[in-house]
């Protein structure tokens, strides 16, 4: 994989979920970095802006929505597509996620092929490995 391979940043406090998402995205042809909460994600993103955020909502220290709002307020990160993947399911959570700047809301557990498809499109992975 080269440095132009899209980079996704997975933000989730549950290690098993991170592994699951990492497997899924790597199989879809992405590079992956992980952060355990919003604060860590913000630091990592500012150091090396990714092509996609994959964000959980309920996390210690800084939750996913606060992270998204911070990212959307930050010119360097504002335009990076973000998928909220959460087990929060109430309507308020969906609205809150979009209001915070999420591009897509998916419910846990998300099926790998669904996640892979949306993530590839949003991160701009070339289709079927066909390089432009």
């Amino acid at each position: 994989m080269t440095a132009t391979t899209p980079l996704a940043l997975i933000v989730d406090d549950a290690a098993t979920i991170r592994s699951f998402h990492r497997d899924t995205l790597e199989k879809a042809g992405m590079r992956v970095e992980e952060a355990m909460n919003g604060l860590e994600a913000l630091e990592r993103a500012l150091a090396a802006p990714p092509n996609l955020f994959l964000v959980d909502v309920n996390m210690p220290q800084m939750d996913g929505l606060s992270f998204l709002r911070a990212a959307r307020a930050e010119p360097a990160l504002a335009a990076i597509p973000a998928i909220i993947v959460t087990s929060e399911r109430a309507a308020g959570d969906v609205e809150g996620s979009f209001a915070a700047g999420a591009n897509l809301f998916l419910s846990k557990p998300v099926r790998p092929e669904v996640l892979a498809r949306f993530a590839s499109v949003l991160a701009g992975v070339p289709l079927h490995g066909a390089s432009a």
């Binding site: 709002r69 990212a71 959307r72 307020a73 930050e74 504002a78 335009a79 990076i80 597509p81 973000a82 915070a100 700047g101 591009n103 897509l104 499109v121 949003l122 991160a123 701009g124």
Partner: peptide, 17 residues
């Protein structure tokens, strides 16, 4: 404060779509 950010994010996602 994040209205501009939301628009920027929506633009990239629409572009990707």
């Amino acid at each position: 404060p994040i209205a501009a950010g939301r628009i920027a994010a929506a633009r990239s996602a629409i572009g990707a779509a």
